[in-house]
Nucleic acid binder design. Sequence first.
RNA 1: GCCCCGAUGGUGAAACGGAUAUCACAUCAGUCUUCGGAACUGACGGUCCAGGUUCGAUUCCUGGUCGGGGCACCA
Length: 527
Amino acid sequence: MEERIQKAIGRTDVVIRRPLATFGDYAVFGGAEAEMFAEKLRQKLGDNAEKVEVAKGFVNITLAREAVTLAVAEADAQAGEWGEGTIEEGKRVIVEYSNPNAFKEMHIGHLVGTIVGESVSRLIQNSGAEVARDTFGGDIGPNVAKALWGLQKERITEPTMAEEIGAAYVNGSHAYEALPDAKAEIDAINQAIYAGEDRALMDLWRKGREVSVEEFRRIWKLLGTHFDFEFFDSDTTETGLRVVRDGLDKGIFEKSDGAIIYNGAEKGVHTMVFITSHDTPTYEAKDIGLAFLKEERWPSDKSIVVTGNEQAGRFKTVLAALVDVAPLVAAKTVHLATGFLKLASGKMSSREGNVITAADFIKGVIEKAKEKNADPLVAEQVAVGAIKYMILRQAPGSDILFDAEKSLSLEGDSGPYLQYALVRAKSVLAQAAPTSEVGAAAPNEPYLIERVMMHFPEVSARAARELAPNLLVNYLTELAGEWNSFYAQERIIGGEHEAYKLVIARAFVNTMTNGLTLLGIPVPEKM
RNA sequence: GCCCCGAUGGUGAAACGGAUAUCACAUCAGUCUUCGGAACUGACGGUCCAGGUUCGAUUCCUGGUCGGGGCACCA
């Protein structure tokens, strides 16, 4: 519809917006040209528009009954394809997110990136693009050495649980700070991993990494995500080192106190070390290596990297260096920063060993959900929906306050509220006699829910374009509210216009199902 | 010290330079309880401060206040 309005006006630069319901279905700001726009719209839209009015520089368009009916019929008929777009067709987009580090447990910070990254991936895919998902985890460096040192002290050669490794990391970390001998041993282990010649050590390293990653995969699956590529530091060090050394010769990087740094002063970014004076690469050099690795494994038109906003400064330096090293790769790279997850219940401490793990957090929310849902599968769907909604409802970048109590109250403005509205609609359809009649008689004035529903394709498209799942969350919340109002005010089965109301119910089920799926929120059958 | 991000009803959030600033929670008052009440309806109440740009500013610019984050051999 937006496209038709633009065409009718003959201008692609006008912004079509959704006005307050009292003004109409679509609005265009025309300023002095408003009357002219309105005239064109009246001509081109013809019977599709019931009203085209000018007010305070705006052109307000109210669709005719027939046009609304058509949109609702599409929502009903297109089922899973309702809301799909084509603007990104033919494009290849790679999205990096989650990025947990091996030998550490995934904590609640990773949850945010994982959930935002997955939804952004789905939204872009829905716009027609081919999407690859990748995650990049640390599996080498001082933190890994600390964990391995801890495992060696406990004489563990066959680690089997993520908690075991997490505990070893915490022990190693404390020892590193407190005991000079331990510090020296850990530093030696770090060097030895890079060298890769100590058989026993490398064996422990491989096993430990596998245990960590198995645990990550379990959580990813629970959250409805998976990765086409699981990259590790160890995959990127070689390329990173080579590119940075090469850049040193070209004058892009410089030597300072024995280290190789990128001087960001000129570009107004932080100056950072890329290769240490011990000749080991830092995370920054590995990031450069990763950009090349991605290019090699899955060439793309666009590369999106989702990380916490505390990494924004670091990322700017890496991107500035990448501009000098590989301008084309840098130009298509977009950084999406996510906010911190804060818990309303307090008790969140960043002190080592006191971090809330993703697994524990999810488990806790599932336990709460079980209080109201006997079926464990449903409890899990409700819990995951509650967590995802809380995170996705706000613009990426702003901090998130998670209140478990509120999220699971199932009252308005929560994941379960959306799921509940959907389940109710499904229940109505299950009880209705199957009708497949086309062109069921509709009341003259469309219900509000019909007018809200027809905007779904436009909202999904904009959410994808702006990498902003929160826009879709807001919209679906409004839609669920409209459904609940419709449901409360109108008798569906056995009521007037029953056949048409069932079309609305089916269209609503499709819209909500597709919308929740784009957010990665589970769609329960019952709850 | 320097850099980045943020500040919207009591609370948590929307608003691509445009209309009467949109929701939800909480509070108060109702509906009704026959398709699933975990619902619906209504009331209450808000753009941090001072300038500037603009026909028009929550939005852009400058300064200030408050809060969060980052700042080379950690990731």
